[in-house]
Design a protein around this nucleic acid. Structure first.
Lengths: 93, 93
DNA sequence: TTGACATGCAAGTAAACACTTGCCTAACGT
DNA sequence: ACGTTAGGCAAGTGTTTACTTGCATGTCAA
């Protein structure tokens, strides 16, 4: 399991997490289409696939293979490594 | 103000934040000494200074000049950008 | 079984990044 | 005034990273 912080460093990967947070279990092609349509990201399928691998190595995304489809599920649990590390001040009112 | 996520991607910068969380208001030389002694980080003064600039651009560190000393203060407020963006699950018991 | 669809693998490239090196400016103590 | 201390600036280097290109594998429908 590699670096959660490094996985979050790329804006395209954060957009992927946004997308999976809104609609979990998408395939690679769905993610590509929605990134283009809704986030203005025009990266190739292979680029997105590589990003998903990095997210998976960080534990932020899990795969579920079914036939020729590969569904992607987000897991935001590793983000506690960020939250628990430093004292985040309360929201000002 | 540049990318908070990118600022957190480097382990040396995270160690700097750890150090400032434990003892706020250190000078550059203090930070260097304590990083070496307590975190096993042997980077040069200039390297640490560049890291502090990046942390400052992300809003995570502020400076306070006093004579020939420059005191560094951590501000973890920008970390709410991480917390508020995705639904982080509760800790399992 | 043939073609279309969904994905995987791997080499190559260009840019970003972390770090060093060398010199410079400024503040303090004696 | 002089040396020392704290920090700044900027060019250069080696590695990492994001991305592309081209081809290969596997799955399903007709």
């Amino acid at each position: 399991m590699t670096d959660v912080f490094a996985a979050l460093a790329d804006p395209t990967r954060r957009a992927i997490l946004d997308e999976l947070a809104e609609r979990d279990g998408q395939t690679l092609f769905e993610i590509c289409a929605r990134l283009t349509a809704r986030h203005g990201i025009g990266s190739s399928r292979q680029a997105i696939s590589q990003h998903l691998d990095i997210l998976a190595q960080a534990g932020l995304v899990r795969f579920a293979r079914s036939g020729r489809y590969k569904f992607h599920h987000a897991d935001f649990g590793p983000l506690r490594a960020v939250v628990d590390r430093w004292p985040i001040p309360e929201e000002e009112l």
